[in-house]
Design a protein around this nucleic acid. Sequence first.
DNA 1: GTCTATATTTGGATAGAC
DNA 2: GTCTATCCAAATATAGAC
Lengths: 200, 200
Amino acid sequence: MALEQSDVRSRKWDRTRAEILDAAWELARRDGVGAMSLRELAARVGMRAPSLYTYFPSKNDLYEAMYRQGMQQFADAIQDTPPGRDARETLANRSRTFARMSLQDPVRYELLFQRPIPDFAPSAESLDIGLTGLAETRQFAIEAGVRTQAAFDIYVSMNRGLIEMQIANEPGGDRWARLIDDALEMVVEHFASKPQRRKR
Amino acid sequence: MALEQSDVRSRKWDRTRAEILDAAWELARRDGVGAMSLRELAARVGMRAPSLYTYFPSKNDLYEAMYRQGMQQFADAIQDTPPGRDARETLANRSRTFARMSLQDPVRYELLFQRPIPDFAPSAESLDIGLTGLAETRQFAIEAGVRTQAAFDIYVSMNRGLIEMQIANEPGGDRWARLIDDALEMVVEHFASKPQRRKR
DNA sequence: GTCTATATTTGGATAGAC
DNA sequence: GTCTATCCAAATATAGAC
């Protein structure tokens, strides 16, 4: 069954759009996400700047597409993480995946979890992409004995703290990254080994 | 004993410079440290942009002055932190001071501990300002039972993680900030209550 | 020391021809 | 869809008068 012409056209359009997006990530990795210019981005895909507007109505829409794609990559990776023999292992595996994804591409981490561009705010729809995986992870944490929201917040902050120290102070190294497993196990052990009170 | 005329002049120059620096912090707090323009900064102190060059040779020199000042404020606050009854309390007090300073002015935190401006790198001299206080804190940590560099890195990362989660997700709130004391105590307890092996 | 005027660069975005 | 040409805004920084 032959494709409609409009389908062919839109598939080409999609491919070009994806190519621009790839080039945008490359450029962001080189110069920082805030220092990316449409002129240079266009040059990288063999175009002039105005042609980009065929694919993205504005620069913020480009950021939005990058944000959504990055968020989707995180969500996919988290949900593709193999479960362990118990909830505690599954939680550890997911945390490792999050750390690996973060360290693998610090610029993506920056765009998703810090606020590097003052004028850009991701859409609620894009923000939602990660919520399902996060809710699942929270359930594994509960099963692993990290029961309260506060305990889970500490757990997540421990992971994030080591990741951000690694990225900020020694990108590409492992001084902080190599501590992640032990540090997270410490948190789980702390909360799992004793009953948690609801209030203090 | 009368001041030399050159002293009078330089004191006025110092005052104006300090006034510009204050206005720069105000502006950075409002717009973000990367979105600060010299035109608006000048307007805030009743000047035109070119006049600022009498006090700062370039915008990067202004950033450098801000960085140094912010670093000095952190160093002073840390070293003015009252000691506790033992090393563990002193360590906790210092960590609380660091967190309080961070949350009190997130833009200062950002300038000092993240890299918000791609073209700006602080001088080695400015970076050194915090080193003495950090080395002292490390000593208190050792006395408190947080002996290895890795253990101290985890301790610091726990504090930083909670601070950054608070700033990034809920500036002005306390969802993560209120967990700092307990989380840091958990880390100290973990390392202090058992002998630490040098390697794993 | 401060000003006006301006150089220079760079950015996002649009108009309209092809 | 892509281009050239251009607009418009904003930024840092400098020259030279006062």
